[in-house]
C-alpha cells in the first residue's frame, strides 16, 4: 500500500483543535505521539484526510495531583512522563509500572496515555491499572464536556464511546486512601520491548481491622476490551483476605476473562495465567496495603 495523502494542522489552542475536529468530522484524526496512528496509516488501515496535531496546544501535557481530588493526566501527557512522575510512582505504582515497561523507550517518549486508551487495544497497558484505580475520561467537544467512567469507555477492539468531534482532554484518577495497595503485572515472551499477552491490575483498600473496603481488579489481553472483574471484587470486599480467598477471587477473574487463541498465546494459557497473575497481584497489593503506605 502506498501511504495516502493527508493534510496536517498544528493549532495552538484547544478551541481550534475542536473547531478542526468539527469541521473535518468525517475524515480527521488527532495526532500526538503517532505511535499507533502512523503505523495504521502506513498499513492502509486508516486513511484520514486531515491530521490535527496536539503537540503545539498549551497546557495539555500537564500532570497534576491534589490530595483529596486525585490525579489529572493531561490528554497530551507522554507515557514516559507519567511513568516518571513522582506522585504517580508513590500513589499509583501499578500505573507507573505500566508506563515504564510497555512498548519501547522511543514509543513511551512519544506516545500518550490518552492515546493508549483511545486506541482501545485489548492489550493497552495503561488501561488495566487505570481501571483498577477507578479512573474516568474527560471528553470534550465544541458543545461541551462530559466525564466517562473508564469501565464504560471501551466498546470493542479499537472502539470507544467517543463521538466524532470529541477528544480526550484529560484522565481523572481518584485519590488513594491510606491502607491501599495496588499492582500491575504483565506477561510477554520477551522480558521487555514487547506487547503483553496477559495482564492483571489490582487495587485494594483496607479498613483498620484489615478488611477490604474496596477492591478493583482489571484484566488486559483476555477479552475484546480491557475488563473489570466485579465478581472477584465482591468476593473480597468486606472480607479479610487470606490465601484461599485470594485464590477464589483469582478464579472469579478467570471466569470474567474471555480469551482467544492467537499468535501470542492460547486461550488455555491465558486463562491459567489470569489465575496466577491475579493471585500475585492481590498478594502484592495486600502486602502494600498492610504496610500502611499505598
Amino acid at each position: 500500500m502506498a501511504m495516502p495523502q493527508f493534510q496536517v494542522h498544528q493549532p495552538k489552542t484547544l478551541e481550534s483543535v475542536l473547531d478542526l475536529l468539527g469541521r473535518h468530522r468525517s475524515s480527521v484524526k488527532l495526532l500526538c505521539g503517532g505511535t499507533d496512528l502512523l503505523i495504521k496509516m502506513r498499513a492502509g488501515a486508516q486513511a484520514p484526510e486531515h491530521l490535527v496535531s496536539l503537540n503545539r496546544v498549551a497546557g495539555l501535557k500537564t500532570i497534576s495531583y491534589a490530595g483529596g481530588d486525585g490525579l489529572v493526566i493531561g490528554g497530551a501527557a507522554r507515557i514516559s512522563q507519567v511513568g516518571k512522575n513522582a506522585e504517580v510512582r508513590r500513589l499509583y505504582p501499578g500505573l507507573a509500572h505500566a508506563c515504564s515497561v510497555m512498548a519501547t523507550v522511543q514509543i513511551r517518549n512519544m506516545g500518550t496515555v490518552a492515546g493508549n486508551l483511545v486506541n482501545a487495544a485489548p492489550s493497552a497497558d495503561t488501561a488495566a491499572p487505570l481501571l483498577a484505580y477507578g479512573a474516568s475520561v474527560v471528553a470534550v467537544e465544541r458543545g461541551g464536556r462530559r466525564q466517562i467512567k473508564l469501565v464504560d469507555f471501551f466498546t470493542g477492539p479499537g472502539l470507544t464511546v467517543l463521538e466524532p468531534g470529541e477528544m480526550v482532554e484529560a484522565i481523572r484518577v481518584p485519590d488513594v486512601s491510606p491502607r491501599s495497595g495496588s499492582c500491575y503485572l504483565r506477561l510477554s515472551a520477551r522480558s521487555k520491548v514487547d506487547i503483553a499477552a496477559v495482564s492483571v491490575a489490582g487495587f485494594l483498600n483496607l479498613d483498620l481491622e484489615g478488611r477490604v473496603i474496596r477492591c478493583r481488579l482489571a484484566l488486559g489481553s483476555v477479552g475484546p476490551t480491557p475488563l473489570r472483574c466485579p465478581e472477584a471484587e465482591q468476593i473480597l470486599e468486606g472480607q479479610t483476605p487470606d490465601e484461599k480467598l485470594i485464590a477464589q477471587a483469582a478464579a472469579a477473574c478467570v471466569r470474567a476473562s474471555r480469551p482467544i487463541d492467537d499468535l501470542r498465546a492460547t486461550a488455555a494459557y491465558r486463562r491459567a495465567m489470569v489465575q496466577v497473575l491475579a493471585q500475585r497481584v492481590l498478594t502484592q497489593s495486600l502486602d502494600m496495603a498492610k504496610g500502611g503506605t499505598p
Partner: peptide
C-alpha cells in the same frame, strides 16, 4: 518484530 519475538538486549 512485535510478533516475531526476537530477543533484545534486555533478554
Amino acid at each position: 518484530f512485535l510478533d516475531y519475538k526476537m530477543p533484545t538486549a534486555e533478554d
